[in-house]
Design a protein around this nucleic acid. Structure first.
Lengths: 183, 183
DNA sequence: CACTAATCTGACCGATCGGTCAGCCTCTGA
DNA sequence: TCAGAGGCTGACCGATCGGTCAGATTAGTG
């Protein structure tokens, strides 16, 4: 039967977020989402053109913040300043959107190649470059990549930690781990 | 036609390693592997009981080393010593088996729940505990988990870096990032 | 009332997946 | 020479996937 109120769109989004977080994007079928909402799979595809569109809409706010961080970093001519902006901005992003980031669950490589996410990869590279203090040394780039990937991969697991505490811990970790760019 | 030499088993393993590294475990079908080898899908399933058996055999050496590291850590009564053993052992493991670790590519959660890998999760938890200096503080556990996940997730991407250089960089990162357990 | 547009359903589609099976080669040893 | 074992193939299976489609139901509007 048709819903009395047309709020199904939002319910689908919420259900998809729960399922993606539990079993990943690829591990969640449209039928899973439909079952959780209590509607048919066809209803899900009535509200969203395809499966990827659900993910795109879920990630939109986080991507918008990531974009603005990217341009803020680009505006820093000094490597040390860019590094600090990148560290603080990324930690803030990871903490605020940890549930959104978590639901990607290691499926970045495939998902980032889809048309809607092509630019994310370039932003990530610039973020790593800034975190590495714009250094070309292998050890600096390894450090930056390990920290970025580690935070992205784990931030969703600390649901029981407050934003404040998680952010402080991550920022302190970055400060300890990142070499000052000039030395 | 039948192969003149029965070396197909090894060829399948090598092909599977390449495909898993390129597109992940779930992203690789038995047909993909068969095509790369140049045999039929049925031939793959003649040499391996099921798809998971290929992965199990590929990971066996790394898992064996991980196990021995786990027991070495367990034999350290002092948190500081356990932390050092865990850091050095894990870096050595990540560097030596980086290609094997890489081919899991973020599919840990699902794969570790399969029967053949059940104990890996417990070992991981003990490893994190040791890296965190056996501390209960949230910040220590966050640090340990971020570093562990970051290294596991990225070590396969540094194919152009020598074992020595990668190991030194990772170990230096761990030393900088890990708080001394007593303070 | 009639008409329209939005919402939703069940049935269906083609593709792909991991896995099974009967049987065909080829080699080896008695 | 021939039986048997190891190695392998093509055809096939049931399940599941994302996605399509015609039509039913509902709510709003004149």
């Amino acid at each position: 039967m048709a819903r009395t109120t047309p709020q199904t769109h939002g319910e689908i989004l919420a259900a998809a977020a729960r399922r993606f977080a539990a079993t990943g994007y690829r591990g969640t079928s449209l039928q899973d989402i439909a079952t959780e909402v209590g509607c048919s799979k066809a209803a899900v595809l009535y509200h969203f053109a395809h499966k990827e569109a659900i993910l795109t809409e879920l990630m939109a706010p986080a991507i918008e913040v990531l974009r603005s961080l990217d341009s803020r970093i680009a505006g820093q001519p000094e490597p040390a300043a860019a590094q600090q902006v990148a560290a603080e901005g990324f930690v803030d992003l990871a903490v605020r959107f940890r549930s959104e980031i978590a639901l990607l669950r290691g499926e970045y490589p495939e998902l980032l190649q889809q048309p809607g996410f092509a630019h994310i990869q370039q932003i990530s590279e610039r973020l790593i470059d800034a975190l590495a203090g714009r250094s070309e040394r292998a050890s600096d780039r390894i450090t930056a990549l390990v920290l970025l990937a580690g935070i992205a991969e784990t931030c969703g697991q600390f649901a029981d930690v407050s934003d404040r505490e998680l952010g402080d811990a991550l920022l302190a970790l970055l400060r300890r781990a990142l070499q000052p760019p000039t030395r």
